[in-house]
Write a protein that binds this DNA or RNA. Structure first.
Lengths: 121, 121
DNA sequence: GCTTGACTTCGAGTGTGCTCGAGCTTTTAC
DNA sequence: GTAAAAGCTCGAGCACACTCGAAGTCAAGC
């Protein structure tokens, strides 16, 4: 099988079918090819791209930034540096976020210990 | 000064004034004391609590879970263990989230390098 | 030829977490 | 005594990222 139905793609990516169509509608993925009946056919390339988008999404990138990234990608190889920069900026934001999470995790830990000690007393 | 106006509290906590009133409205903080004119007075205790809530919110706890936590706290010392458990559960979720972020960061890094190499070629 | 099932489009609806504005009161400063 | 500043309540509105449902098409199986 060289391509997949929307259902298969959704299962593989852990997306809803609605979300897949939504991503296409808002331009996060270029229109996928269609069968003669108008049904979408997802190629491996489509799945790869969506999988990377998922990664960006999970790390907190907004739809509009992903859209900007997609628009760069669509413009071809001239935007490779720009794309690297966009991802680097994102990378730094994610790093900062992780650092913040770890700092706050310590506060939570402190509170947990506090409660445990009080409960034991 | 033994208490603070809503404006001062908002500045100190990096909250909006609206958000402070919202938190009280939905029961994330017990009704703060009021001056004779009906204005809110935030005590240090209030600020401490809000500051910890901020920590929970920043680590991704939902308002409704924070509400549950608040409800336990309001019931007194009998709920110390329950509170510790709630926080422990949250802690694990945050840890899992951090791990996921770090894994996905690697994918982003790979992509960045990919782009940089292609741009250099 | 009719049902079933997977797909299509389109526009409206949802949940979360605030955010805002209208209309009012009170205190302070001139 | 009046104007400005700060606060109040209440309900509506907003941004985000989907999510859903109605109404229709198309191909396959009986």
């Amino acid at each position: 099988m060289t391509h997949k139905s929307i259902r298969q793609a959704a299962e593989e990516l852990n997306f809803s079918i609605h979300a897949l169509r939504y991503y296409e509608r808002v331009g996060l993925i270029s229109p996928v090819t269609r069968g003669t009946n108008g049904h979408r056919h997802y190629s491996n390339e489509d799945l790869c791209w969506l999988s990377f988008l998922t990664c960006l999404r999970n790390t907190g990138m907004s739809i509009s930034t992903m859209k900007a990234f997609m628009d760069l990608a669509r413009q071809g190889d001239g935007t490779l540096t720009a794309r690297a920069e966009l991802l680097t900026t994102h990378r730094e934001q994610v790093c900062a976020h992780v650092a913040q999470l770890q700092a706050q995790l310590e506060q939570v830990d402190t509170k947990i210990q506090c409660y445990q000690q009080q409960a034991a007393a």
